[in-house]
Design a protein around this nucleic acid. Structure first.
Lengths: 246, 246
DNA sequence: GTCAATAGTTTGTCCTGACATTAGGATGTT
DNA sequence: AACATCCTAATGTCAGGACAAACTATTGAC
């Protein structure tokens, strides 16, 4: 008890109250103020201390439980989950992930075209016959070392894409600036052996292991915006995620 | 308009009302009664039709949005997301996944021991020095064909595990019967080349691609219950998931 | 001393009500 | 006819209350 979460709620802020609580508790956990395994005060007292209603407090805790930071148990209380588990896989691009982790990614655009979509791409993006798409292949490097080989198809009725912008920023950044609000993506992760085309580009030998990902992203209007096949060097990349039981 | 969702709410059921709504809408989507892209009626009317309050209706829709089946847009309405995207990766075992998809998995227990945990396992499971764990290796087959090679370590202060039960059911089933309530798991997915030990067991050749997964699972009391390294034949298995932007 | 009934605490569910914010269409003016 | 403005409809946020269900710990009985 005496948690003293040091939370301050700014009612004049445009940020929703429950989200301010989420951010506050997240910060408390990350700074170590709330230790793993420690119990929080009960919802009603916490809400009262912050002059919030219980539903608002509960909504905040719901989010934290969903993201795996807290664990609730009826009749017992709410605990900070033992740390060491990572954040869930987010709907972000490789470029963002690398930038956020302090690296400076670079991109080589290996091919670029604006062409009519073939049948498989039309199916993946749910486009009518004759629709055109941007089709390009990129090589992503970090610290001069190649990490990923990416081939993508993007529908062309949203924003224009050119080779120069692809070389200077991530695809998702371009699309977001073009007004796309991503909502969800479905992806499949597997493995394959590097072939003679991939191996020299990724500066590895044919026969080495690659992690593969196929992804299709959907925006808030339900349109399939982008689909792509990516291949990563297995010795440099893996997908990390946290699954939460509901 | 006139959606006629055919939902029936049973107020005497122990299943929470919002969850009955979730199940009903899920069923409507899967049976095609609600087509991809179609708009739902607004929350207030839907709630009124089912004699529910709006918060209850919203809670149901929140779940569906979270799982990626619906998309909401303020001022506009709620849409069924274009199908073709799959369900999110769930906290379940390979055994369950295979059983649910109609296959009949079998398990060969290659090794089994009850031994003192070494330093790396103690760290992964957060155990004190001298603690003992179950350590075993299994080969999972479907239709007689090998699919996965799995090595696991399980803490021994929860339930007893023996070779016979491992051969007849999945690890998560054993642990659940032993009273473990899983809450979350963190896992990493990557790739590797089959080595001389793995290749013959998986009936493939050394040098072929494998998908690897390392997972640590936590129960509702915050204890690390299980950790393991798995290797799957890349030509037979891949991880499929849906990411939802919040 | 051991076991079962009980009381209290905490989260889970559900309700009614209110106002804010946003998107998009309708309206009116230029 | 083109444009800006207003209005409407829908979701987003927040409050306060009530009861149910589950777990803990205490109390009581044998």
């Amino acid at each position: 008890m005496a948690n003293q979460l040091n939370l301050r709620i700014d009612r004049s802020s445009p940020v929703p109250l429950y989200h301010q609580v989420v951010q506050g508790i997240e910060a408390a956990i990350h700074t170590g103020l709330l230790e793993p395994g420690s119990r929080l005060e009960n919802e009603i007292d916490l809400a009262a201390q912050l002059n919030l209603s219980r539903p608002t407090m509960r909504k905040a805790m719901d989010e934290l439980v969903r993201s795996g930071l807290l664990v609730r148990k009826r009749g017992v209380g709410t605990q900070v989950v033992s740390s060491q588990v990572r954040r869930p896989l987010e709907l972000s691009s490789l470029y963002d992930d690398l930038s956020n982790s302090g690296s400076k990614p670079t991109t080589d655009v290996l091919s670029f075209s604006h062409e009519e979509a073939d049948a498989s791409i039309r199916k993946a993006l749910q486009l009518p016959a004759g629709a055109k798409v941007y089709h390009f292949t990129r090589l992503r490097k970090v610290g001069g070392k190649p990490l990923a080989l990416m081939e993508n198809w993007v529908r062309d009725d949203i924003t224009t894409i050119d080779e120069a912008s692809l070389a200077s920023q991530g695809l998702y950044g371009i699309l977001r600036n073009g007004g796309v609000n991503f909502r969800l993506a479905s992806q499949r992760i597997g493995a394959m052996i590097a072939n003679d085309y991939q191996a020299p580009l990724l500066e590895t030998t044919a026969g080495s292991a690659l992690v593969t990902m196929e992804r299709t992203a959907v925006d808030d209007t339900g349109r399939m915006v982008e689909t792509g096949h990516h291949a990563y060097r297995a010795d440099s990349y893996s997908f990390e995620m946290t699954l939460v039981q509901r």
